[in-house]
């Protein structure tokens, strides 16, 4: 248990440090990328699937699996789609209107 708590606190610190000042055009893709990473909750769906042995367990497994899969698959695909727009080496100014910049 204590190891897990240490992992949690140290990961928080890494999370705070890993993002320094980022250009505002990257705010939305960055948010979407982080959104995809918490799709790791699909691991939780796998564990409860293995433990399920009653109707409540099966229903919750199905809900968790469907939700988590939408999060992780959709998250990575949509982030990649957004980031494709940045691959224009001749025009790095990135002043063009980007999705989500309001």
């Amino acid at each position: 248990m204590f190891t897990n708590l240490a992992l949690f606190v140290l990961s928080l610190l890494v999370g705070f440090e890993v993002i320094s000042k980022i250009p505002s055009t990257l705010h939305t893709p960055m948010m979407s990328g982080a959104n995809a990473i918490h799709g790791v909750v699909v691991a939780g769906a796998i564990v409860i699937a293995a433990l399920a042995d009653d109707p409540a367990g099966y229903v919750l497994t199905f809900i968790a699996a469907a939700f988590a899969a939408a999060n992780v698959v959709g998250g990575y695909v949509v982030t990649d789609r957004m980031l494709k727009m940045f691959r224009k080496p001749d025009r790095p100014a990135a002043d063009a209107p980007k999705a989500g910049q309001k």
Partner: peptide, 22 residues
């Protein structure tokens, strides 16, 4: 599950910094 603890905390912290910057 350690993968969920690490990735979750990472997103929790990085997301907070990102929110402040936005």
């Amino acid at each position: 599950n350690q993968a969920m603890i690490i990735a979750g905390a990472l997103v929790g912290a990085a997301g907070t910094i990102l929110t402040l910057q936005m």
